[in-house]
Design a protein around this nucleic acid. Structure first.
Lengths: 232, 232
DNA sequence: CGTAGCCTTGAAGGTGATCAATGTTTGTGG
DNA sequence: CCACAAACATTGATCACCTTCAAGGCTACG
């Protein structure tokens, strides 16, 4: 009943989510799951959709967004490799809907796991429930960090976001982004106007804190200079 | 080994947290726990403290706060009757510290549960882990709601906070607050200056949206008028 | 080659922050 | 019970930061 390629499975076995769970059990947790491929800017699901399945990110990235009353998008979380998307609503009893939308950032591959599998195996699996707990806890801490900085000037908040992003998507020691983050997305993530973000980052580009890289769209960030820019 | 009074126990048995768990099991989950009483503005624990125990609110309220770089307090959550405080860090392995501070709002009573009890019974209890999950999920949704409104004008954000507070602490149909929320706390909760909150709420007081009540410090909020004030 | 999404810059304006001074309430210790 | 301190509330004046609006440019992609 396995429709997942061996190379993908190998990767999945090493996800922290499944730490301490046997391969047999992992296979059961993935029963009836299918690999799904998204292009750039494709919706995985929208807020209000029936929550009939959830996903595990294999490659690429997915942003979780809500829509503000004004019609703007607010980004709540970036889900990268190994992260769960839409899983947290699964434990609700009865039919339920996603409270949030999920949209791909660049080409993305993920495993789509039916809700029935969740009900059958995830729901009653203590280790998994504890892992989900840990994921929720980490995600909550990230949002709280954001909120803690809500009184800081915008330059500081942008710098913070960038540094976090570098930590998440770069090889250690390197500062070459592997996942593009547009100015629009930075703005949506902080809940501010794009123009404000652009004005600040243009300065940083002028003084060399951010350098254009050979690969289109991906920039190189000089963390030390970023810090230096904040010293006043 | 029970040091909790029968009247308290009776209340605890009906907390949603313990829904579907037998009384015997609940008693085991509360092994070696003690009732703790806090006066107004007392710290239950501070960010950085060793996380040796966690608590369940019996009466009153506790605010969870972080400190911003500028030294301001930012309120992350109001924990009311039946809510867990400091429980989410318990599942970390090894010794760990609280990432947040908890401070009482008015006289408060809670049950203090040692970490050993968590490790012994909570950790391996599927139903409890799922409940904790649900609590985390709800709390996360609240913060996300806040963030979604971050681009709205301050008057709207204050109104929203007040309406949520009324839902939480008032008898249904009534609009008489039972837990005081100072202007300072509203400001800390939204990450804005007190003066800004005061200016907006003074208007509301002038046009009757908010009325002083006989009981000191607690105000009466006219939800309909509140809505009316936002219609422009 | 045209459209869609993103980026950029400028000018004008408003919302909320900051600073300062003062009043009010609550709790504490002599 | 009074005096005093600490926390909270209030109001006004000024100003900075960020938003909004407008106009245009760039790049990718069908």
């Amino acid at each position: 009943m396995i429709k997942i390629e061996a190379s993908d499975l190998e990767r999945i076995f090493h996800f922290p989510l499944f730490d301490g769970i046997s391969k047999d059990q992992i296979l059961r947790l993935l029963e009836n799951s299918l690999v799904k491929t998204l292009k750039h800017r494709e919706y995985l699901f929208r807020a209000g959709d029936d929550a009939g399945s959830f996903s595990l990110v294999l490659e690429g990235a997915v942003k979780l967004i809500r829509h503000s009353p004004k019609g703007e998008d607010i980004i709540m979380h970036f889900a990268l490799q190994g992260d769960l998307v839409g899983a947290l609503v699964m434990s609700q009893v009865g039919p339920s809907i996603f409270p949030i939308s999920a949209k791909s950032m660049g080409p993305t591959r993920l495993i789509n796991i039916p809700r029935a599998t969740y009900n059958a195996y995830w729901q009653s699996h203590l280790t998994i429930q504890k892992k989900i707990n840990a994921i929720l806890y980490r995600r909550m801490n990230l949002i709280q960090d954001d909120k803690t900085m809500s009184t800081s000037p915008l330059r500081v908040r942008i710098a913070n976001l960038l540094m976090r992003h570098v930590d998440n998507v770069c090889a250690p020691g390197d500062q070459q982004l592997t996942i593009k983050l547009t100015r629009q997305e930075i703005a949506d993530s902080l809940g501010v106007a794009v123009e404000s973000v652009i004005r600040i980052m243009s300065e940083w580009q002028a003084n060399g804190t951010i350098k254009k890289s050979p690969i289109k769209g991906l920039e190189k960030i000089d963390i030390d200079k970023l810090h230096a820019n904040l010293e006043f």
